[in-house]
């Protein structure tokens, strides 16, 4: 299913930038439009920073994927073993933040991607998967 998988650690602000650059490279390589590249890169930025800031660090995997109908896309899986998100509905509400952010990152990433999956358990960690298909 995957062409190339790359996994990056997210333990610093520089790592967030690195994830962003990798997603940009994979999306450009897959032939994604500039607008969609910017969308998935921005989603990656939000998720990677959440992992670093709220999840206490983790890792990101970037893969280029093809669905059953032969459509190509880019998938990003961001994982941490942090505190998890106790109330998913709240976290996905625009403007809700437990810190000092704008509270727009998570709901924004969901809107920027074509597919969004949030898997979290209090005390165990959080995994967010986003996919953007090429139009």
């Amino acid at each position: 299913m995957t062409a190339q998988d790359v996994e990056l650690p997210i333990v610093s602000n520089e790592d967030v930038v690195r994830v962003r650059q990798l997603v940009r490279a994979v999306a450009a390589e897959a032939g994604m439009s500039l607008v969609d590249q910017t969308k998935i890169v921005t989603a990656a930025s939000e998720l990677a920073r959440n992992t670093f800031v709220h999840g206490g660090g983790g890792s990101a995997r970037v893969e280029s994927v093809v669905n059953a109908r032969g459509r190509a896309g880019v998938r990003l899986v961001v994982t941490d073993n942090g505190p998890g998100i106790p109330d998913i509905d709240k976290a996905l509400t625009e403007g809700w933040t437990s810190g000092s952010g704008l509270g727009l990152g998570l709901p924004g990433a969901r809107r920027l991607a074509d597919e969004f999956e949030l898997d979290t358990k209090a005390g165990e960690g959080t995994t967010v998967t986003v996919t953007k298909w090429i139009r």
């Binding site: 969308k39 704008l102 924004g108 809107r111 920027l112």
Partner: peptide, 13 residues
């Protein structure tokens, strides 16, 4: 630019 404008809107900023 257009791609930035669209992302900002999608983020709800």
């Amino acid at each position: 630019r257009p791609q930035i404008a669209q992302t900002i809107v999608a983020l709800g900023i």
